[in-house]
Design a binder for these strands. Sequence first.
DNA 1: GGGCTTTTGTGAAATCTTTCACAAATGTAG
DNA 2: CTACATTTGTGAAAGATTTCACAAAAGCCC
Lengths: 206, 206
Amino acid sequence: MRKIAESTVRRLSLYLRFLEEFEEQGIETVSSEALAARGGTTSAQVRKDLSFFGSFGKRGLGYSVQELVQKLRGILGLGRTYRVAMIGAGKIGSALVQYRGFKQRGFEIVAIFDTDAAKVGRGWNGLTVQDARELESALRDQRVDIAVIVTPADSAQNVADRCVALGIKAVLNFAPVQLTVPDDVVVKTVNLALELETLSYALTNR
Amino acid sequence: MRKIAESTVRRLSLYLRFLEEFEEQGIETVSSEALAARGGTTSAQVRKDLSFFGSFGKRGLGYSVQELVQKLRGILGLGRTYRVAMIGAGKIGSALVQYRGFKQRGFEIVAIFDTDAAKVGRGWNGLTVQDARELESALRDQRVDIAVIVTPADSAQNVADRCVALGIKAVLNFAPVQLTVPDDVVVKTVNLALELETLSYALTNR
DNA sequence: GGGCTTTTGTGAAATCTTTCACAAATGTAG
DNA sequence: CTACATTTGTGAAAGATTTCACAAAAGCCC
Ligand SMILES: NC(=O)c1ccc[n+]([C@@H]2O[C@H](COP(=O)([O-])OP(=O)(O)OC[C@H]3O[C@@H](n4cnc5c(N)ncnc54)[C@H](O)[C@@H]3O)[C@@H](O)[C@H]2O)c1
Ligand SMILES: NC(=O)c1ccc[n+]([C@@H]2O[C@H](COP(=O)([O-])OP(=O)(O)OC[C@H]3O[C@@H](n4cnc5c(N)ncnc54)[C@H](O)[C@@H]3O)[C@@H](O)[C@H]2O)c1
């Protein structure tokens, strides 16, 4: 498949969310113009984004909301459930484990790990926090698609290495470090400091 | 000032973090090559990014770590403390309020608001959760530079509108909605679903 | 001081992304 | 069935960002 820009993928994900809203409201067709208005972009952008994957609309009419939802789910790989391991049972890990939006969108947390003896064995939202030393043995038995790293910054790379060794190909990282992984593993880092500093820059240079 | 790309600002923020590491390690000068290697980019990119703001290096030698840290702090507007209001005292709000990295980098939480009577009045990390109805009166008395919105999605726009009315010019939003604000207000949205779906796309299309 | 090495700063080129603009469909109304 | 109004899909143009490549600066050594 032709290389698709990350910005395009992010917009597709946004479009999907808007289309789901439209679907709930009983709207059956939508034009690129309407979709663009909802998402703060342009109709040409919407059409171009979609055109990388096929032609899903009807000229003169627009797109069938239901059909486009299906197509986008397919393109984004959302026709299935992803099994997620949470590594680190701290403050952020706790918020994420309790977050319903996760499962709602097909990402199911199936295991939680921590090194802290005080946390291991505790029940968390129906799951038991496991000792991080058991990461390898536990994940040999059950498939995990995505690892979420919410450990302190100084253990994040080590945790990532172990996940890679276990064959995990996708990592969502909250530790404020730049992780090094092989080319076939994809990492997304959510770096709060970076977001805040972008705001700081914007506030300063106006 | 000439328009600077957001990608450039984000990289400057990353460079700053790496430079601070170098500083701690007692490294005094660094070349664009070394900085690039640390951050997964290229030396030309580093030099170009910096060149938008001036010339900070010495040919043949590289950059003084200490001096570049100062310059970047200045460029990013980090020579001061920002006063932050947390709106929503739920799971994510709780994690953020307890997060030390926030204050460490100059972002000080000075107020927390919630609508839930069970939470109002409780002490949170040295602050008292205030009734969200008091947002206007409370923030008229004390300056707030940045609002962090961690309320459910369906109240996020309303909260944003109230913040805008109070003159707040920067918002960090965790609710999975696209906020509408005037041009002179800057919003950064951290959308977990989007990040996960980017991973899903990457896992699917390989 | 002159030659050598290193590394910056920056125009120009290459690449990537967005916007434009219009022919081709498609439905609708008369 | 024809004319008309819409709206898609897409090359081409415009704009933005990254990479290239090299002259100029600066330290070092003899
Ligand atoms: N709390 C926030 O709001 C916030 C915001 C942005 C980023 N972060 C980052 O997210 C990460 C976690 O933050 P937190 O506030 O939840 O910290 P925390 O200290 O509350 O939690 C970290 C947890 O990881 C566990 N841990 C340590 N090493 C481990 C290992 N090798 N394997 C498994 N578990 C391990 C600790 O026992 C602890 O329970 C940090 O890197 C932090 O910088 C946090
Ligand atoms: N928990 C997570 O891991 C997570 C991850 C990503 C995004 N989010 C998003 O962050 C937001 C908060 O999530 P959460 O898990 O903390 O939810 P939560 O329900 O734990 O907390 C939300 C809090 O906001 C309060 N609130 C409601 N309306 C308010 C108003 N108008 N003003 C002030 N406070 C108000 C509620 O009383 C509650 O205490 C949601 O939009 C959620 O989708 C959460």
